[in-house]
Design a protein around this nucleic acid. Structure first.
Lengths: 192, 192
DNA sequence: CCTACCGATCGGTAGG
DNA sequence: CCTACCGATCGGTAGG
């Protein structure tokens, strides 16, 4: 019982530190030995919990997804869903590590040989689909500005968020204002 | 004479292949020995031309900049400058390697310790400034839609382009349509 | 979970 | 430009 609970806690801490390490150095640049020493174990101990470096990466990404589950599940109107996406951007400005993680790994993972390539392809399809759904719902509410195509607007919004993350990481330029202005420009009704 | 001219040509070819290697593997993941073998020399031979790996990266980025010089220098009206940016996106869809290079390296270089960190900070300031200038010129022409702030619109456009590059690399989703639609939405006059 | 090891590979240098 | 080397580090495994 104690051993099991302690084992799970340790594993969760390892995954948190693995995310930081992957964010800082990417997949190739991240060293099992350095991460292990940050966790107070040896790199062989790390490989006792996770059989390979690839498996550790996937476990860490799944761990991150579970921690963020429900972050986008704001059941509400289309306009409210879009406001929720703006809130996510605001929230992201308080967690550089998470933003860095996705910026670095999604760029790395564009290579089909990358261990997380399939994960990021699926992640983008899911994220873009969520944004498209939000704009489509806004259209049904009559809140969409004339000429706005939900399919295009959804892809644009996710792209804008990703691009602003790079600029924010590099120069510190704030993200929220630019995202909010862009979303508002697609609507005929003010964001809450 | 011959030696000098041949030396320059070889060096240019090395830099072209270095760009491909950095794009595929990032800075850390790129190996001098593998690049050298692609160039038909040893890794020590590579270090005869470029004293360190850092120096090779910077030389390759400068080489790339020189090849693309003038790509943005479409002297014309603000609306024409914006159309020129859309043309760059169209052009980029025919050179995956270049798009991959900037996507991978700009994400990596968000870390202040990265050898190209200062380069990418300066690059973004320059690129965003160009887009802001284009929108400001469009404003002076009376071509800007009401409520559009050139400073915000410039940052949004560069961010949109970067984000769409990630999506294009990952899923193959075309970039030009979404960029063109976004730029058009900021204007009161049709793009050429 | 550790010690001890494996083969492989890394960037860089000496010396020519 | 090459050969030959340096110390360091890598992911992974055997065996406990």
């Amino acid at each position: 019982m104690t051993g099991y609970a302690k084992g799970r806690a340790t594993k969760g801490e390892i995954l948190d530190r693995a995310l930081e390490a992957f964010a800082a150095a990417g997949f190739r640049g991240m060293s099992l030995r350095e991460l292990a020493s940050r966790c107070g174990i040896t790199h062989a101990g790390l490989l006792y919990h996770f059989p390979t470096k690839d498996a550790l990466l996937m476990a860490a990404l799944t761990h991150r997804d579970e921690a963020d589950a429900g972050l986008l599940r704001t059941s509400g109107t289309g306009v409210e869903q879009l406001a929720g996406l703006v809130d996510v951007v605001r929230h992201n400005e308080s967690r550089r590590g998470v933003v860095e993680l996705y910026a670095v790994l999604s760029a790395e993972a564009t290579s089909p040989a990358h261990p997380a390539h399939a994960y990021f392809v699926a992640r983008y399809e899911r994220t873009v689909a969520h944004a498209v759904d939000a704009f489509a719902a806004a259209a049904r509410e009559g809140a969409l500005a004339p000429g706005v195509d939900p399919a295009v607007a959804g892809r644009q919004l996710i792209a804008l968020m990703d691009g602003l993350q790079i600029q924010w990481l590099l120069t510190g330029a704030p993200m929220v204002g630019a995202v909010r202005a862009h979303v508002q420009a697609q609507l005929t009704r003010p964001l809450p």
